[in-house]
């Protein structure tokens, strides 16, 4: 089936089997590999993207259903080579270890801050509750989101 997906503001023609999930189409057809495949089972959040601003596990979402939506991946957060404040604070807070969860974590945090610019720690934990990290223990990830919300120029 052929259709168009709009990823980070750019229209990509897609010619792919209709059963493909959004994750595989983003990685293998569109060619953006920042979005990761972790559990492939809707559990870990490594595949998180935004559909019209709302977080979605792209491993468990049919790509064809995303037609007409504005899809945002981790690659869509930077502007003109400048890191998004969330990306910068993740780096500077030491919130990145192996890094595999990081794109999904940042995408979920972006959705959280867009909906709630002034979250408390509990709000941040809930906002990131669909994202697993096996390295950091989460404390520095939460710190990075808190600093971003506070507008800390870091």
């Amino acid at each position: 089936m052929t259709y168009i997906l709009t990823v980070n503001g750019t229209d990509y023609p897609v010619d792919a089997d209709v059963t493909r999930n959004l994750l595989s189409v983003i990685r293998e057809v569109v060619g953006l590999t920042g979005t990761k495949e972790g559990c492939d089972d809707c559990e870990c959040g490594a595949c998180m993207v935004l559909l019209d601003g709302r977080p979605v596990n792209s491993c468990s979402y049919l790509a064809v259903q995303a037609q007409g939506c504005a899809i945002t991946t981790i690659e869509g957060l930077q502007s003109d080579g400048d890191l998004h404040p969330l990306q910068r604070h993740m780096l500077e807070s030491g919130a990145v270890q192996c890094g595999f969860c990081t794109p999904g974590m940042i995408v979920s945090a972006r959705a959280l801050l867009d909906a709630n610019p002034d979250p408390d720690d509990e709000d941040i934990r809930i906002g990131l509750s669909g994202n697993l990290c096996r390295c950091t223990g989460y404390a520095r990830i939460i710190e990075a989101v808190r600093k971003t919300a506070a507008g800390d120029s870091g």
């Binding site: 809707c42 959040g45 998180m48 709302r54 977080p55 979605v56 596990n57 979402y61 979920s108 959705a111 959280l112 809930i126 906002g127 509750s129 669909g130 994202n131």
Partner: peptide
């Protein structure tokens, strides 16, 4: 239910 992502879809 699930996580924020699961609750949205």
């Amino acid at each position: 239910v699930g996580s924020p992502a699961t609750r949205h879809v």
